[in-house]
Amino acid sequence: MSETITFTIDGVEVQGAPGQTILEAADAAGVYIPRLCKGEGLAPRTSCRVCTVMVNGRPQTACSYPISDGMVVENETEELMTFRKNIIDMLFIEGNHYCMFCEASGRCELQALAYRFGINAPKYPFMYPKRELDTSHPDVYIERNRCILCGRCVNASRDEDGKGIFEFIGRGSEKKIAVDSSRGLSGTDAAAADKAVEACPVGSLLPKHRGYDIPVGRRAYDAAPIGSDIERHRKERNNE
């Protein structure tokens, strides 16, 4: 299909292709909408809610909502920015995030979002939950203290790796990520090269033996905020 769909994001006209989500069309147009649970190449789960935008006045998740002609999308309103900040705060206080010794620091998408939003300190009280570590596997480990329950590993393992190693158990605030064996990760055929490991946006599902391999200053988000690559695209185009 070659027809294009025209809609607006914060009053600016954006074009996309039929079947695209708001997020896909926005990315292509160089407009950054924050996201966490939507992994590159993975089906949207719509669980983190960080990508919430207003579509014709109603809240929707940009990562899943299909675009249509004439649609009016609000993205960077003061209200939405506050809500998104609040959600990021919630993810921090819900877990135990000790960035100073986390191997994912500097490439963690949660941390990067907090930096981008200029969050110096979460506004909510910390919960300090007790969570389990799974180091049973020789090459991969799960540090649940840092899990943000995004479910990217679930999708990646099922749809990309074809392994179905991860799923959630429990519900509500008891919900946690689990693996397909009563013996922990070592009872599964997980591998460090699994897409699931790569998909984890934080330092929860990590390869062993990698450590702090990239020096501070050269890590993914050390120099420029998350989303800059998408926005750069737009600047370049505008300069053409």
């Binding site: 719509t46 669980s47 983190c48 809610r49 960080v50 609040n86 959600i87 919630m90 993810l91 206080i93 819900e94 909510y124 009280p125 919960m127 943000i148 329950l149 959630f168 429990g170 519900r171 509500g172 605030s173 008891e174 919900k175």
Partner: peptide, 14 residues
């Protein structure tokens, strides 16, 4: 709460 999404899972407790 089913716990699927952040605001409901964490926000209600807060």
């Amino acid at each position: 709460s089913c716990g699927y999404c952040t605001p409901c899972r964490v926000g209600n407790v807060l």
